[in-house]
Nucleic acid binder design. Structure first.
Lengths: 203, 203
DNA sequence: CGCATATACTGGTCTTGTCATATATGCTCA
DNA sequence: TGAGCATATATGACAAGACCAGTATATGCG
């Protein structure tokens, strides 16, 4: 149901084609907080059209195939507003990587450290991409729409950073098990510091 | 496909019934990183049984209905290991709340602040529940399985905390727009500090 | 004895997302 | 001139998760 409203959101800002919703919106400007594939976008547009929430206008092109440009209808904008203000629960955490980690007891340390490293590299790449999109600070008198967009980027940045910090904690924990410091070698039951409580570092 | 392997993971540790997989595992010990409903668990068990990855044993009970206790087969354990070491990409960020925020331009400040507050309360409750599960530190000589489980809890904690920090940043940003400090009132274009870069605070 | 609850399992359906495939127009370049 | 790519729209099939409903056995309580 959320894709419906994401599309209504974009169309409430300006008319867009199905092709541009996919390539410009879900592959680019909004990819840090929602994605959709081509089949899904066209099917959702059809459904929204059937419910009179959007209206297409055929646009003839001479150097390109003809295209349908969609706009949100007043009913669509009203439905978007209703949905936005209705709120809803946060989705449960759901990442196959956590299943892998949880049941990794039979996996060698090197393999597990490799998986942590791979995932870290992926999140680092995401963070760097997000960083380039936020390199230019907003002026103090920025429009609300620019501020809201920036806030979604900040959410993705915060998510990537906390992921990286957590992955580093995991790596340190596993390495410290493999090579305990000399104090631990003395055999006492000194508890490990709680993970996840460390302050974030710049990366 | 991930539920298959989560179930194989639990069954590789000890035999479990379908009912306990749902109530003890996906509703309790693993609910911070994966959830599944009852119908889904039973259907997945059937599929795993068909693929010879698990094997049920009927257990007669006299004070309760009879039950099936499932175990992972050697083939199942091998498949679990294969899947764990195969890795895979991080799922894209996907939270309807971010769509709501992005397109909230037509929503009143009070409504938007209310949504931020609701979500913050929900994440705070999650954090507190996770905190009670990690209140007791692991001993330095803890088993690897306990350490790995603790790491998944840390992931959920990190996620909740970074969410709360981000939500607080959003709230501050919106409030500062509503009541700019006197310096901004002078009309200069001083840029806002980048959001998401602030250190996390204890909550 | 009826009701609620726990334990235990199964069937049906819907939604959402993914993967594959198809057709069409037009441009670029070796 | 044809392959590859961009633009543009669309359909079929399937998987995973969610939701709803159903059946059965057993216990506890008013």
């Amino acid at each position: 149901m959320s894709l419906d409203h994401a599309i209504l959101g974009f169309l409430s800002e300006k008319p867009i084609t199905g092709y541009d919703l996919k390539t410009r919106c879900f592959d680019e400007t909004a990819s840090h907080f929602w994605t959709a594939d081509q089949a899904q976008v066209y099917r959702t547009l059809e459904r929204l059209e059937n419910r009179k929430f959007v209206r297409p206008r055929l646009e003839r092109q001479h150097s390109r195939p003809d295209r349908k440009v969609y706009s949100a209808t007043p009913a669509g904008i009203s439905e978007l507003h209703r949905w936005i203000t209705s709120g809803g629960p946060a989705p449960p955490l759901r990442d196959p990587f956590l299943i892998r980690l949880r049941f990794a007891e039979g996996v060698s340390d090197d393999e597990l450290l490799g998986l942590l490293g791979e995932r870290r590299q992926e999140m680092q790449a995401r963070l760097e991409s997000l960083r380039t999109q936020t390199a230019r600070p907003l002026p103090a008198d920025a429009q609300l729409s620019a501020i809201l967009e920036r806030l979604t980027l900040d959410a993705a940045i915060a998510h990537a950073r906390s992921s990286i910090d957590w992955l580093d904690d995991c790596t340190e924990t596993l390495l410290s098990r493999r090579e305990p410091d000399s104090f631990s070698r003395s055999g006492d039951s000194r508890p490990l510091p709680p993970l996840g409580e460390k302050g974030g570092q710049e990366r």
